[in-house]
């Protein structure tokens, strides 16, 4: 479904991605792990076209993303941002139904609201939340609203950027379970970036370890503990000594 071949990206002298090659099969959930500042978010933004890679090819369903129609391409995606990225000036339901109120997916206002309320219910939020402003919600509720927005237009592909960052362990567990359930019931292809190992085990079908600008290891989540890769081993056990610390 998503194929990345030899992606390079630099910001000035900082060479963030140094030849990332990765395949995400259709209908599977890929979790990209790696330390802070290793380029995980840049990788997602490259796929979405928010950041242009310096070189390499990104294909979605076999189509080169640089040559596809931008609106049609983005209509296939939903994304949950790290901080929620909810629009402060709009009530919750308009945030969720944003895509359904404009552009090619535009619906009548009443129908868009109905869908938004249904999606809010799907992520465990009642209709009383619909008319509140994002600033009136807790961090966990904002994540849920972000999740509802990501799935509102029933996209084929969903990206989750650090979905549990800043949440307490119980709320993180709730969000992880929601993501897993939603991805499974929608049959969507999902890419999640995180360094939270409980998220990895709850969400992933496959795992890829990004370090030093390249994918060090990729494989099914059940083989992660026996990967035999020193980087993965150090990362998943959170050890201070190992090849990652040596490089830092």
């Amino acid at each position: 479904m998503i194929t990345l071949e030899n992606i390079h990206k630099s910001f000035g002298a900082q060479h963030v991605l140094r030849g990332v090659t990765l395949e995400v099969p259709k209908g599977t959930s890929m979790v990209v792990i790696g330390g802070s500042g290793t380029g995980k978010s840049v990788l997602l933004k490259c796929i979405l076209g928010l950041v242009s890679p310096d070189s390499g090819t990104i294909r979605v369903a076999g189509e080169d993303v640089t040559r596809s129609d931008r609106d049609a391409f983005l209509a296939r995606f939903g994304m949950l941002f790290q901080g929620g990225a909810l629009f402060d000036s709009l009530p919750v339901w308009q945030n969720v139904a944003f895509r359904l109120m404009r552009g090619s997916l535009k619906r009548p206002k009443a129908e868009a609201r109905e869908i938004a309320v249904a999606k809010l219910r799907r992520v465990g939020l009642g209709p009383d939340v619909a008319d509140k402003l994002p600033a009136e919600l807790s961090g966990g509720m904002q994540k849920r609203v972000g999740l509802a927005r990501a799935i509102a237009a029933e996209p084929e592909i969903i990206f989750f950027d650090e979905p549990t960052t800043g949440l307490d362990p119980i709320m993180a567990g709730v969000i992880n379970d929601l993501i897993r359930e939603i991805v499974t019931e929608m049959g969507a292809t999902a890419v999640t970036i995180t360094h939270d190992m409980s998220s990895v085990r709850a969400i992933a079908d496959n795992v890829a370890m990004l370090h030093d600008g390249v994918i060090k290891w990729t494989g099914p989540v059940e083989k992660m503990d026996d990967s035999g890769d020193a980087y993965v081993d150090q990362f998943i056990h959170g050890r201070a000594d190992g090849p990652i610390a040596a490089i830092r």
Binding site: L48, L50, L74, G78, M79, A85, D88, G103, R149
Partner: peptide, 17 residues
């Protein structure tokens, strides 16, 4: 500027706007 640093501008783009 606040929308930019809180990724709301990126969110707009991903929502085809």
């Amino acid at each position: 500027g606040t929308m930019k640093v809180t990724e709301q501008i990126d969110a707009l783009t991903t929502l085809s706007t």
